[in-house]
Amino acid sequence: MKLTSLMLNINGEDRTVIVRPADTLLEILREKLGLTGSKPGCLNGDCGACTVMVNQRTMKSCLMLGVEGEGTEITTIEGLKGTPIQQAFVENFAFQCGYCTPGFIMNSQALIQAHPNADDEKIKEWLESNICRCTGYEEIEKAIMSVIKNPGT
């Protein structure tokens, strides 16, 4: 197995890892860096449980090679601390088993940063890429609506 050395900036820290060129960002986060908040729900982009932010934009880390991450700023759920969206998820009971939660929160956070006043349509466009199997989505909707200040403006 050919290995290569890689420098990744993750949650504001430079981290050096030895990886296979074919390793996905998700594999590296979990297996090499111990950042297990990103979850391997399907490994082909269907479920969104592995969602992270790359240069502040949402990205499914199972769909990106680790080597593509060099020179970018990567944020994982572990890099999010005390944000309103995390608090909103807690207060609105927006999770049950919690497995999809990091992905939903990362996607929501990226959305809030890119579109702080997103309307319903925009929110749907973003969040429909994640799957939650426990809730009926109502609580997730309430959580995100509670942090979008002026929807649609």
Binding site: R30, L35, T36, G37, I77, E78, L80, T101
Partner: peptide
């Protein structure tokens, strides 16, 4: 569960 610290089996 909202900070990624919740550990499941594989984690």
């Amino acid at each position: 569960k909202v900070t990624g610290k919740a550990k499941y089996t594989d984690d």
